[in-house]
Design a protein around this nucleic acid. Structure first.
Length: 745
RNA sequence: GAGCUUGUAGCUCAGUUGGUUAGAGCGCUUCGUUGACAUCGAAGAGGUCAGAGGUUCGAGUCCUCUCAAGCUCACCA
């Protein structure tokens, strides 16, 4: 044996050994032999990484944690499956791809949707193999033969089926509401995908007839349909119910004053303009006062420009329009003052950081109340458990207040809604398409059909927008040539929320019955409500069973100072580079040791070093034990040494402590216990005692075997490398440590 | 504004259903080790476990309050 453990030399060899033995597949002979039929099956669905994402420490963390659970379960004799996959990550991926297009001087508008989809598909294919290889490098013992992608044909077919079933169950509806729209990304988002940024803005005090009112968005004033005051506000009571004349930039107009207690009399002047199509509060107020107020007016379009309703300001971008309008208001003496130090929170796109526009758009929604109630019942009955610093309470809070889920996205990269409009009967549908000469044409379907064939429009189609009263059919396949399909795609989370069900149903025969519900869902706490909550809802809905029994949430990996890793700070650790330098085992152990569910973990170079030293220590302990064995092989067998009994007892204690920790998902504690006991008890005390003959070599060897097994889930490469040496020396019987039984306690 | 979490050695963090003298890694001091490992060992310094009160035979651990930090959600135009 070498004097030092050479991680790099061994890792590839060992991974290949496992693969050749088919050791990751629960159906393989070696795993069938290991299996104990009295134990239930054990399964983890890997949170599918974004297909185009390169690996970062977050991936390394979930891979390490899940691999530990899986390897432990496998050795214990469970029928064990770790099912890997990849997610198409709709918006994320399309966003990355569009950035790439931009570099080539192109944009999504240069292509019809089929071509664009195909281009993204090819791009993702190129990249997804990289991620796959990287996961293997980290030692993941997932069954790659069962790998699934969210856009695999069978998966998308199942997603559509679910949608149809939900429609039948009347859980789907289409409604024209304000959505969180990002004009830059060109799509709507759910509430969960909107960030808020505190900022200083300008608060404008503007004259509205007899009133002065405060607003941060003067450019939306052309969409005003009323004014509101608080019902108890004495100052304005005489005006409630009155129509007042207002001097405007595009001529005078009339606004009705309503009373509603959403108005805060303390804020500004206590009068607020109602602009239903550009503010969520105003929209809600309009719905409460529908019979008193006229129909809403849209002033901002989906590209972030003012509409014709803005008169001479039509076509201007929001920011420019605001400047112009403020200037004109000032000239007309309608601007009372500007508060330049007004602090407020701006809703921004989580993806591109640009301002989110509340805009009216007909979208498909899922009614969530029934589903959340079912999950809440399960939570109360403790039918599943969330591991991680108080996140069970967070989950409960979310389930209680969740609003209906907008599942329509105006992007191409995803599963297209199986919604069909009859072309001739829906002349008001707005369509954008590329004609034969690649000219981008936008217009109402009714008018376009006079000049263009429907087939041409469908072929070059980019997007369509059907009015709220458009008739539609929900059907997997086209109802006929004269139908045109909705261009919206499903929110990515709609498919990933069904992942445990879909990935097992569309896999090897019998997998669903064998491995569902899964045992543990392990993922990062920051997607608890995006993903975990929705998996619980959707899993319960489509199978009447919760998709998993335990949820283990891990935290963020931070740098040595506890700071978030980010490119701009330059403190990002590339897991593969760290693995190259210190060994994958050291990387994994550094991530896991002393980590706690739900809490962030800091890691620095010193941690990697310390863990590399641990691996080397294990290697050298083995080396010494083997050397000693050789030297003493000629001597006759002595009777048990003085401390043997005590040694056995302590070893059993460690075994049961580590097993208990693993069963209770205290992985950080298990790793720490192993580290301390191995180093400071087994090496520093016992091996030293054995030199003095106080502990027999048989016992020491037994101890080594036990530690190799207990350590294996955490540091699989070094333990297996050592095992292979022992196996060649015929000192152990099982050919592969990974598929050898866990020590019994 | 609401909720959640955290506060333990110089730094980063463990500490299981409450139970001997509160631990680890890194750092620090002194010494040792040329036959497992300098990727090592031994000894040591360093903690009113954020603060106050309470429950208990016993509290780092449970309860209440205070302080500080972080995260999430909501939000007034």
């Amino acid at each position: 044996m070498n004097k030092h453990y050479q991680a790099k030399e061994n890792e590839e060899k060992i991974y290949q050994l496992w693969q050749e033995a088919n050791a990751f597949n629960p159906d393989s002979k070696i795993n069938q032999n290991l299996k104990n039929d009295d134990l239930p099956s054990f399964s983890i669905i890997m949170p599918p990484p974004n297909a185009n994402d390169p690996l970062h420490l977050g991936h390394a963390a979930f891979l390490a944690l899940e691999d530990i659970l899986i390897r432990h379960a496998r050795m214990k004799g469970h029928d064990t499956l770790w099912l890997p996959g990849a997610d198409h990550a709709g918006i994320e991926t399309q966003f990355v791809f569009e950035k790439k297009l931009k570099k080539e001087g192109k944009s999504r508008f240069n292509f019809d949707r089929q071509t664009l989809y195909q281009m993204i598909w090819d791009y993702v294919q190129e990249n997804s193999n990289i991620a796959l290889e990287q996961m293997k490098k980290l030692g993941a013992s997932a069954d790659w033969s069962r790998y699934k992608f969210t856009l695999d044909e069978d998966i998308t077919a199942s997603v559509l089926e679910t949608f149809l079933k939900m429609d039948k169950d009347q859980l789907i509806y289409r409604e024209n509401r304000l959505v969180n729209y990002c004009p830059k990304c060109g799509t709507a988002f759910s509430n969960l995908e909107v960030d808020h940024q505190e900022q200083t803005s300008e608060l404008y005090y503007i004259k509205y007839g007899p009133f002065t009112l405060a607003t941060t968005r003067p450019e939306t004033k052309f969409g005003d349909t009323g004014l509101a005051v608080h019902p108890d506000d004495k100052r304005y009571q005489q005006y409630v119910g009155q129509e007042i004349e207002v001097e405007g930039l595009n001529g005078n107009f009339k606004l009705k004053v309503i009373a509603d207690d959403f108005v805060d009399p303390e804020f500004g002047t206590g009068v607020v303009k109602i602009t239903p199509y550009h503010d969520f509060n105003d929209f809600a107020a309009w719905q409460r006062h529908k019979n008193e107020l006229p129909d809403p007016i849209q002033v901002v379009d989906f590209e972030g420009r003012l509409t014709n309703a803005a008169g001479k300001y039509a076509g201007l971008k929001i920011v420019n329009a605001r400047k112009e309008i403020v200037k004109d208001l000032e000239e007309r003496g309608l601007l009372v003052k500007i508060d330049k130090n007004y602090r407020n929170n701006l809703a921004v796109c989580y993806r591109c950081n640009n301002a989110i526009e509340p805009l009216p758009l007909p979208q498909f929604y899922i009614k969530v109340k029934g589903m959340t109630n079912e999950v809440l019942k399960c939570l109360d009955k403790k039918e599943f458990k969330v591991y991680g610093a108080g996140y069970d309470k967070v989950l409960k809070h979310w389930l209680e207040k969740l609003e209906d889920w907008n599942i329509s996205r105006q992007i191409v990269w995803g599963i297209r809604l199986p919604v069909w409009y009859e072309a001739k009967n829906n002349p008001m549908i707005k369509v954008t398409f590329l004609d034969q000469d690649e000219q981008r044409i936008t217009g109402k379907l009714g008018e376009l059909l006079q000049k263009h064939q429907l087939g041409t429009i469908k072929k070059g189609l980019q997007s369509l927008s059907a009015p709220i009263d458009a008739k539609y059919l929900i059907k997997v396949d086209s109802p006929g040539e004269n139908y045109i399909q909705e261009t919206d795609t499903f929110d990515t989370w709609f498919s990933s929320s069904q992942w445990p069900v879909l990935a097992l149903q569309n896999n090897k025969e019998g997998d669903f019955a064998r491995f569902y519900p899964t045992t543990i869902m392990e993922t990062a706490y920051d997607i608890l409500m995006f993903w975990v909550m929705r998996m619980l809802m959707m899993g319960l809905y489509s199978t009447q069973q919760l998709p998993f029994k335990r949820v283990y949430l891990h935290g963020l990996i931070r740098d040595g100072k506890g700071q978030k890793m980010s490119k701009s700070k330059g403190n990002v650790v590339n897991p593969l580079e760290a693995g190259e330098k210190y060994g994958i085992d050291a990387l994994r152990m550094a991530i896991v040791i002393r980590s706690s569910a739900g809490l962030d973990k800091s890691i620095n170079e010193a941690d990697f070093k310390a863990m590399r030293n641990l691996n080397n220590k294990l290697w050298n302990a083995t080396r010494f034990i083997l050397l000693q064995r050789e030297e003493n092989s000629t001597k006759t067998k002595k009777k048990p040494a003085k401390f043997d009994k005590k040694f056995t007892k302590k070893l059993e204690q460690i075994q049961s402590a580590v097993s208990r920790n693993l069963d209770q998902l205290q992985l950080g504690l298990a790793a720490e216990t192993l580290h301390n006991e191995f180093w400071h008890w087994f090496c520093d005390q016992c091996i030293e005692d054995s030199k003095k003959g106080l502990i027999s070599q048989e016992k020491i060897f037994e101890g080594l075997i036990t530690f190799l097994k207990l350590f294996h889930p955490f540091i699989p490469f070094v333990t297996e490398s050592i095992w292979q040496i022992l196996y060649q020396e015929k000192l152990v019987n099982d050919p592969i440590l990974m598929c050898s039984p866990w020590p019994r306690c």
